[in-house]
Design a protein around this nucleic acid. Sequence first.
DNA 1: CGATTTCCCGTGCCCGTTCACGGGTATTTG
DNA 2: CAAATACCCGTGAACGGGCACGGGAAATCG
Lengths: 353, 353
Amino acid sequence: MNNEGNKVTINDVAKAAGVSKGTVDRVLHNRGEVSRKSKEKVLKVIEELGFRPNLYASLLASQKERLIQCVIPEFQPGEFWSLTEKGLQDAAQLVSRYGIRIETVKYDQYSVESFRNACSKVMDNPPSGVLVAPMYGEETLKFVGRLSEAGVPYMFLDSKIDDDGYLAYFGMPMYQSGYLCADILTGGRDVPEKVYVVRIARDKMGLSDPTAARRAGFMDFMKGHYPDVQIDNVFIDPKDKAAIYTKLDQTVGAEKGKRFVVMFNSRIHLVADYLTDRGIHDCRVVGFDCLEKNIEALRSGTVQALVAQHTDRQAVEAVNSMADYLLMGKSVAKRDNFIQMDILNMYNCDYYL
Amino acid sequence: MNNEGNKVTINDVAKAAGVSKGTVDRVLHNRGEVSRKSKEKVLKVIEELGFRPNLYASLLASQKERLIQCVIPEFQPGEFWSLTEKGLQDAAQLVSRYGIRIETVKYDQYSVESFRNACSKVMDNPPSGVLVAPMYGEETLKFVGRLSEAGVPYMFLDSKIDDDGYLAYFGMPMYQSGYLCADILTGGRDVPEKVYVVRIARDKMGLSDPTAARRAGFMDFMKGHYPDVQIDNVFIDPKDKAAIYTKLDQTVGAEKGKRFVVMFNSRIHLVADYLTDRGIHDCRVVGFDCLEKNIEALRSGTVQALVAQHTDRQAVEAVNSMADYLLMGKSVAKRDNFIQMDILNMYNCDYYL
DNA sequence: CGATTTCCCGTGCCCGTTCACGGGTATTTG
DNA sequence: CAAATACCCGTGAACGGGCACGGGAAATCG
């Protein structure tokens, strides 16, 4: 019906419905000024003829600019979120020719205040669509509430909040990533009696740890497969560089022989630096995320494996489906999109980007 | 210059160059009838103003259908090439709105004759562009020669032939994939004194083995890291199902204790079936490619890891860049595109597709 | 030198939608 | 009953590029 040489134009519809194309257009974008009778007739004809507006003509004629705003945490070059930013930029280029502009609004992930400000900034001048990487549940709920009121569609990136107005979610299965990581760390090897779980992160007061699910997956795997292994948690505040070394000296560095080390956020390179400096080579080290510094640690052999996700691709997909939605009202195929988990080691990391 | 609100139209260019838009258009699609002087002037102005034709206007005006033909081996559902086919279908949907149609022409990879036929079929009605997954070097050279003559641009998929007229190549780094595979098979484990390299493939007379480079990478790794390990080659013709079992009984099945098994093509699931049937559970098995049957073997634990590539994504990228080329004469960024190598195990395979 | 050919180039319509504008009825108001 | 007000609806000019057509100027020919 609407396949192949679909030559049905708005004029055909108009003629068949006994009205003018202006009226058909008004019906299509239901912007009123049409009698109930005409509207029904037009709708029926559209259905019968299988009319689908020509995308090109439509976009050519309505040169309106659309804006997608993306709310993500701020970052230093090379940090985790920079890959997301890169994806957003790539996507921006792709959709720019559809008259869609991408803007990122950044916030300090350690400050609710800052997140709140970012949200207000978005609301000041409501865009056509919003992508948000949420850290603060409560605040995010308020934010998306206001978006809904304003009729602005939104999607979640990376993390998801318990809400049901969102159009789509793009992220990683966190629990499974922890499980996978545990398998890579141990798989088929003689496992030492002690495994160090290092956490170098600022305490976000009152904020749930985004890697908590990952940790849970890891723990469950260990409990199931190696119940006797002792797991040492090493918690370090990253403010003080020296503190990291001191703390690692007391734990990982204090022991001899085969040890396993794992981290759940993206900062495994800090541990790698430590191990290199101290000349420790008998640790099996596994971490997360494809930062440049982590890759270097892979290449040098200090870190054996990384579990990574193409957060850039994730961002691209999110922007694309938002664009599809805005441009042609096409709602997304899957609401929750889990991106693939990649295992990187020194032999395949060079082909990753 | 050409970023943001790029409002430069063909009329602006015409005015600035002191010609009419007709002339600019002729230059753009270099269809002649333009004096050398005008042409240069126009080209210069285009560069200076950063003019990029409006895709919509262009497509709206020239409603011509373009056809991209893809020559790939035929396959049974679930086999290696089915993923490529899927990618082609996905891509077809994406570019259909630009008036581009995708058609696949399949050939029997064990018959030169069949390949030759496929090529003639393409030449009978030359398309706007061609993607080809070549198996026969000589024949492919003849084919692309004829394509060049006809002015039809072409790209290579999966394998590359020694030729220099191709627009782009999308594939996997074969040698490195073998290296990676060896690392996964052995990495950090006690390695048995014997490793079985199984090859279940029809002999393509006179045809070079596409997995040869992979084998070489594997061997080099082993030579470098485990020079004392004996590597047994097990070559089986797949015609006879029983032959597979017989041969495996004589080799892999004949031994007791920890053994390693590896295959370089996509048929590791055949070995998995054998091992399951015989109740053998102490083999470490690593193979290639994300077939449904291979994934099942991963899930059941018979195969421990797969090295895979997103051949679907590879196909999508190839089609996209061909489309970009055809639509806007944009030549591809990278000529040789190596796709990432993925490591799959039972914990991440469910998130792969 | 006039006639013909070649080489270039400008003009104008077309593609299918969007949307501002203005006009024509039916209804209400003074 | 004329005038004002709703309420609907048709018209036509964009939007930016593709391309057929035809015509003017220069070069070639007889």
